[in-house]
């Protein structure tokens, strides 16, 4: 690739922006390698001196971090798959069909994005108790799926609406039923949007704290955000420990991001529409 002035300018802009974006993050990484007495010192110390692996060692060996990690992977993974699939169905239904009360139902869905989640906690807890869904991982999954439908449906609906109707019509003439058209046409073409939805849903369920805290009581069922919150205390917090745990907790989210963002380069750019 030839480096033109335009490309050089673009790269410089990106690099400067990226530097601003990651400086606080780098600081967090650096802190995770500090012993408690060097944490949050003024003036700030960017290169840990002396550096220590003790925080990571403690996170990984003391307590049940691995177990909570596994719980989180199971819950976030399952919730994401189900939520994205159900949202895609919802979005396809809203985008491709006309039926009575369509906009009314859609607005009801949007309302779910607007009410502060905190206010739903108590009614949800009572409901979960009644349905036998408290203190269990499946109970978390059910609420995480329900809680992520609105945003995903809103996001995906726009994309499905933008898909060219010609292809749909062509498949219909070929005799494909609604379900086939959804699976074989809409989902593959909507890959960039589905990838985005997957990335967001995984992050949201991975990081969820309030509901997990409320519904989970048995330590064996706790997820990572609770384990990390327990490292903070009213009378002193070991920040190096919290940061080390937070950095380990970021790894799966980045992995999901890297896996799914690749789908962006495919999409509609190939020009499948023409013809």
């Amino acid at each position: 690739m030839r480096v033109t002035p335009a490309i050089a300018l673009r790269l410089t802009t990106l690099a400067v922006g990226a530097l601003v974006m990651i400086t606080p993050f780098l600081y967090m990484v650096s802190t995770s390698f500090k012993a408690q007495q060097y944490v949050l010192k003024v003036p700030p110390q960017f290169i840990p001196d002396p550096a220590t692996l003790a925080n990571y060692e403690r996170v990984l060996t003391k307590g049940n971090f691995g177990h909570f990690f596994l719980n989180s992977v199971l819950v976030a993974g399952t919730s994401t798959v189900i939520a994205v699939f159900l949202s895609a169905m919802l979005a396809y239904g809203f985008a491709r069909y006309r039926f009575p009360a369509r906009e009314w139902l859609f607005r009801l869905l949007l309302l779910g994005l607007m009410i502060p989640a905190m206010m739903l906690i108590i009614p949800q807890f009572i409901l979960a108790k009644w349905l036998g869904l408290i203190d269990s991982l499946p109970g978390l999954v059910v609420f995480y799926v329900a809680g992520n439908l609105a945003l995903n449906t809103f996001l995906l609906r726009g994309f499905f609406e933008a898909l060219p109707a010609e292809l749909d019509d062509a498949m219909q003439i070929d005799g494909a039923n609604d379900w086939r058209r959804f699976l074989d046409l809409a989902l593959p073409l909507g890959r960039p949007a589905l990838a985005t939805a997957t990335i967001f849903t995984f992050l949201a369920t991975w990081d969820e704290y309030a509901w997990a805290l409320t519904s989970i009581t048995t330590p064996e069922n706790q997820t990572l955000p609770i384990a990390i919150a327990l490292m903070q205390g009213p009378k002193g917090t070991q920040w190096g420990l919290v940061f080390a745990a937070s950095i380990i907790a970021i790894v799966p989210v980045i992995a999901v991001f890297l896996t799914f963002q690749r789908h962006f380069v495919q999409g509609l750019t190939s020009g499948a529409v023409k013809g």
């Binding site: 807890f125 805290l213 409320t214 919150a229």
Partner: peptide, 17 residues
Amino acid sequence: PYDSLLQKLTTSAAGGE
């Protein structure tokens, strides 16, 4: 977690748990 203990107690009281 201490910061959330009051909230957890309240919610649990609401659910009889």
